[in-house]
Design a protein around this nucleic acid. Structure first.
Lengths: 160, 160
DNA sequence: TATTGTTATACTCTATAACTATA
DNA sequence: TATAGTTATAGAGTATAACAATA
């Protein structure tokens, strides 16, 4: 992602590149907007040593103490192998612990530590501020409309 | 991305994972929805041997014949080094050509070949069908609202 | 047999530094 | 000196196959 427009354009420049064909596609607008959101979210989480995925995993573990890695992978819509490094990162920083489930010794119960819960609080506050910043120009009703539309896309998800 | 819910859940299963905290964030809904769009777009483009980025590049080159790689990189919001492989892929399939600009022999003028323009037509038709499929449940007014919101996010983009 | 977590692997996307050839 | 394109490289995200331990 690039953040500002780096070239002040001397007014008598080459004609700008037309993206009118792509702008007819809603997916194109979604991608470009999400790039902006994602770039600012990354900057927001960096002081906490978190990335989008480690942040999401931490939040889900705090909110669902004892869940397994398989459950977490399903919730985050990532493959189990990719979750391993995410969990490793959180565990190495002692934000979460892996504890063997006595009734099923294949699985781990994931639980946040006190440090994990404290970081959760701080990170969530920062992400809320980030969203207020990024979505400042979008009024409450529009936000609800957007969220409802995003949920319709997910439900479509190609079972239904 | 996983597409259907793979486990029919025997009704007396473990409680589902709660993502209520994350669901308060619009960025979370944008990401999950875009994942669905992106997964279906990839499947849509695969028969044409295109990925999202090679498709976008092809469209912009057809629509802006003679543009330079720097201009294209700026339009696509990718770094110049990353564009090289994208352009290479299109050129190796003879969908576009690189032609030296006589007035500035550092730059290439990118132009689509006949095959490139023909693939452009087919790919755009397929992507339109893809969007009709994925956004079927979203009515016209809502689509306009969503697109307008996405554009507001991009304009925010952290110069302004 | 099936599932949990893991390793190994590979492909894509992204970002930076440094080079070359031109300007 | 600055820019266009390139190379090399590294970091992330994502996907599949195959394995050990356990069910």
């Amino acid at each position: 992602m690039k953040h500002p427009a780096p070239t002040p354009q001397p007014a008598t420049s080459t004609p700008p590149v037309s993206d009118e064909t792509l702008r007819e596609f809603m997916g194109y607008h979604m991608k470009r907007a999400f790039n902006v959101v994602q770039a600012d979210l990354s900057l927001t989480l960096k002081p906490f040593g978190l990335r989008m995925l480690t942040y999401s995993a931490l939040v889900l573990i705090v909110d669902n103490p004892g869940l397994s890695q398989s459950q977490l992978a399903a919730a985050m819509d990532v493959e189990r192998p990719n979750l391993v490094v995410i969990i490793d990162a959180l565990e190495q920083r002692a934000l979460i612990i892996r504890e063997r489930v006595p009734t099923d010794r294949r699985a781990y119960a994931l639980m946040a530590t006190l440090a994990g819960r404290q970081l959760y609080d701080k990170a969530i506050a920062a992400v809320k501020a980030h969203e207020e910043r990024v979505f400042l120009d979008i009024d409450k009703d529009t936000r609800k409309t957007v969220i409802a539309a995003m949920q319709l896309i997910q439900n479509r998800s190609f079972g239904s």
